[in-house]
């Protein structure tokens, strides 16, 4: 984002003081509460400057395990969402364009189901499951997906919740490509259909794949409702539990989760920026010379 803004915002002969005003207002709006929160957490009355609120969190039982669980859930969700959607969306565009609307509707359905309703549904299935399936091999399955060390059921719920976001971002990425022509060009160059997708389509979808991963990660990091109702403790649930006991700590908890989310997203963005994208520069627009 930063790169795009930098190149499109060319200096013009217009007064630019309003930009400064916007920056100050936005800065105050976004950073003000943050700064105040940080000050509140480190400046305790009668004690002066102390980091005890933060060390308290880091030292509390369950910090690492809940964080690890969240990250594992995030990775699993991202992988499942991408494996589910990318092949389906490419295939639909290449060979069955009429099914596009169907996929769009299916992927948008989770938007109309509130998280609480989704969870209520999951809860009733999980209750009904063991008794009904008691004598089938599926009994083990239904227990296994609720394994607290890695609750697959949460991944399933998160995948559903991430579908609308993932569909939109992937759709935007695919829209920007002339997929049919690119695949035909690749096949004309001797690439089998599978290689055409791997070597030409996926590299050009990199931005969209990254954005999808980005949004899914953010969603999983901040998800509280489903996990807490189902009784699992990923990071968001743990952090709420730990924060309730002490004023300073509760604010420190939100500051910390904000910073953590931010860091993870930065890492993801950095990981996604490949060599071929670094060499290309949109500033060079060559004039017609032929």
């Amino acid at each position: 984002m930063a790169a795009i803004t930098a190149t499109t915002a060319k200096p013009k002969n217009r007064p630019r003081y309003w930009r400064g005003i916007v920056a100050v207002v936005a800065g105050l709006y976004f950073l003000g509460p943050l700064v105040v929160s940080v000050i509140f957490t480190v400046d305790v009355p009668n004690q002066g400057f102390t980091l005890s609120a933060y060390t308290g969190i880091l030292g509390a039982a369950g910090f690492l395990s809940s964080l690890r669980l969240t990250l594992e859930l995030a990775v699993a969700t991202i992988v499942v969402v991408l494996l589910l959607l990318v092949p389906a969306m490419i295939a639909v565009r290449l060979s069955a364009p009429r099914l596009r609307t169907l996929i769009e509707i299916v992927c948008s359905l989770p938007l109309v189901v509130p998280a609480v309703a989704l969870t209520a549904g999951i809860v009733s299935v999980l209750r009904w499951g063991p008794t009904t399936l008691a004598r089938t091999p599926l009994y083990e399955t239904i227990l296994q997906i609720q394994n607290p060390s890695f609750p697959v059921v949460l991944v399933l719920a998160y995948v559903l919740m991430a579908l609308p976001l993932a569909y939109r971002t992937l759709d935007a990425g695919l829209r920007a490509l002339d997929l049919v022509t690119l695949v035909e060009a690749a096949r004309n160059c001797g690439a089998s259909p599978a290689r055409a997708v791997l070597r030409v389509v996926l590299p050009n979808l990199r931005g969209a794949l990254l954005n999808t991963a980005f949004l899914t990660l953010a969603l999983v990091l901040g998800e509280y409702t489903v996990a807490s109702i189902l009784g699992f403790t990923p990071f968001a649930v743990w952090i709420v539990g730990i924060g309730g006991s002490q004023a300073q700590m509760s604010v420190a908890v939100s500051v910390l989760s904000l910073v953590l989310t931010w860091v993870l997203l930065l890492i993801l963005a950095a990981a996604g920026r490949g060599p071929s994208f670094r060499t290309s520069s949109r500033k060079l627009k060559v004039k017609e010379t032929s």
Partner: peptide, 12 residues
């Protein structure tokens, strides 16, 4: 070998 009507170079 084919040359397409629309620009078909691989953007990446």
């Amino acid at each position: 070998g084919m040359v397409f009507q629309s620009y078909s170079l691989f953007p990446h």
